Simulated scan of single mutants.
Amino acid sequence: MKFAAFTRTLQGTGASRRLRITGRTPGIVYGGTGEPLLIEIDHNALFHAIKKEAFHAAILEMELNGTEHKVLLRDLQMHPFKQQVLHIDFQRVEARTRMTVKVPVHYTGEEESPAVKTDNCLVNHVVSELTVSCFPADIPESINVDLSGMKKGSTLHVKDITLPKGVRFVPKGQENPVLVSLTVAVNEADVAADAAAAAAAAAAAPVKGKGGKAKPAPKK
């Protein structure tokens, strides 16, 4: 993805507030061997861009003063209740430097799995993105996971999938977190039938009086 940025000369709370009034969003580019760069971006163009998944995971081409810079989105500050981007941070991308990024996980094939087709299971996507480490050229737009082999009672962990070449999973608290779990769907008709059978059995059972003896059925 490509986007245009412009050099920002003023900084500070007041300057940023005035900049937002004009329809621009303040930002910064840091990292690598260069000095941090203060930038500003057209807010409308930026607001449309952040709705795209690739803007959050892929390497971006930023055009600044006629020069292209490869960057990654690092932080996005939103207004608490307005649809407004208050500030944005980018990191420079250098070819021989490993980077840690979050990559979305896409699941496919669950409708074809034995768990869903045969055993009436529900598939729960526990994780929607993974933090990985790799060189910039190896950053995937997404990690695709095929669930067509899922069976009743099974659980899918990170170590059960094959990551793209050059990509390593970065644990955040759990070494092997669950990606997908299964639960057996409850058939409401069966539950209603079981409840009706239990009620009928209770009604047919003799009522015991004092001493544990069954009371005779009332005469009609």
Rank of each mutant, 00 (worst) to 15 (best):
Ala49Gln: 10
Ser128Thr: 11
Thr7Leu: 14
Ala201Trp: 08
Asn176Arg: 08
Arg20Gln: 07
Asn65Phe: 03
His48Tyr: 13
Gly66Met: 04
Thr97Pro: 00
Val116Tyr: 01
Val132Ser: 06
Thr118Asn: 13
Leu130Asn: 01
Thr22Ser: 13
Ile21Glu: 15
Ala15Pro: 00
Met99Ile: 02
His43Phe: 01
Val158Asn: 02
Ser181Ala: 12
His157Tyr: 13
Ser128Tyr: 13
Glu111Ile: 08
Ala214Asp: 12
Thr22Ile: 09
Phe90Gly: 02
His125Asp: 10
Ala15Lys: 03
Val207Leu: 10
Val123Asn: 00
Asp146Leu: 07
Val123Phe: 03
Thr97Trp: 00
Ile50Cys: 07
Asp42Gly: 09
Thr9Met: 06
Arg24His: 08
Pro114Ser: 05
Pro26Tyr: 09
Leu130Gly: 06
Leu122Met: 09
Glu129Gly: 09
Asp160His: 12
Ala49Ser: 15
Gln77Thr: 09
Arg92Phe: 04
Ala115Met: 08
Ala189Trp: 11
Leu38Ile: 04
Lys82Tyr: 07
Val93Ile: 06
Ala217Trp: 10
Asp89Trp: 01
Glu141Ser: 15
Glu94Leu: 04
Lys220Ser: 11
Ala137Glu: 14
Arg24Lys: 12
Pro218Trp: 12
Pro177Arg: 03
Ala200Met: 11
Lys172Phe: 02
Gly66Ala: 05
Gly31Val: 05
Pro136Met: 00
Lys219Thr: 04
Ala203Asn: 02
Lys117Gln: 15
Gly212Glu: 10
Leu182Cys: 03
Val178Ile: 13
Ile41Trp: 02
Asn124Ser: 12
Arg74Trp: 00
Arg20Asp: 02
Ala45Ile: 14
Ala115Gly: 08
Gln174Ser: 11
Ile139Gln: 00
Val126Cys: 11
Leu19Thr: 06
Asp146Pro: 08
Ala49Met: 11
Gln83Arg: 15
Val126Thr: 14
Ser113Phe: 09
Lys208Leu: 14
Ser142Ala: 15
Asp160Pro: 07
Val158His: 07
Gly14Lys: 15
Gly34Ser: 14
Glu53Asn: 07
Asp75Ala: 06
Ala200Gln: 12
Thr7Pro: 12
